[in-house]
């Protein structure tokens, strides 16, 4: 019986035996001790609090500046608004005069020469109602304004 010619290599441990199994626990590397971490945390937080305080001061300053600027400009805005209002009243008057020039006996600001408000002294500014104010403007502007007025 012919024996197997191929030299068999038995699966054996390497000469000298296996290396010892490393079963010892390898803890994660610690970079900082607890005290260092606490100190670092306190340091960073203190610095951040200082920066926050500075930032907060700056924000307060900005708010005050914005408020003062608004207060400073408010009278001018009011004056501009009044001026625009009066201009529009004049325009309304002129438009009405132009529109009613062919109607005999029509006097602007009155009803055929008859005063509308009897008890008011002459030259009193009677503020027109909303629709009267926009009576002679373009419908689109009137519509836009109405939309804003109703929605705001």
């Amino acid at each position: 019986m012919a024996a197997c010619q191929v030299a068999r290599k038995q699966d054996l441990p390497p000469p000298g035996g296996y290396k010892p199994i490393p079963y010892k626990r390898v803890p994660a590397k610690t970079f900082f001790s607890g005290y260092t971490m606490f100190a670092g945390y306190i340091g960073i937080t203190a610095f951040a609090m200082y920066m926050y305080a500075k930032n907060y001061k700056q924000i307060t300053k900005d708010e005050i500046e914005m408020r003062s600027a608004k207060m400073a400009i408010f009278p001018m805005l009011m004056a501009e608004r009044d001026r625009a209002y009066l201009k529009q009243l004049r325009k309304n008057r002129d438009a009405e005069r132009e529109l009613m020039k062919d109607v005999p006996g029509w006097e602007v600001g009155t009803y055929y020469g008859e005063k509308v408000y009897n008890l008011l002294p002459p030259d009193t500014l009677v503020e027109p109602i909303y629709h009267e104010y926009y009576a002679h403007s373009r419908p689109y502007e009137w519509y836009q304004r109405a939309y804003l007025k109703l929605r705001s």
Binding site: T45, A48, Q58
Partner: peptide, 15 residues
């Protein structure tokens, strides 16, 4: 944004 212009809150409230 305006409160973190100087330093992020990440450092202020890290944990």
């Amino acid at each position: 944004f305006i409160f973190q212009e100087y330093l992020w809150f990440f450092f202020l409230m890290f944990p």
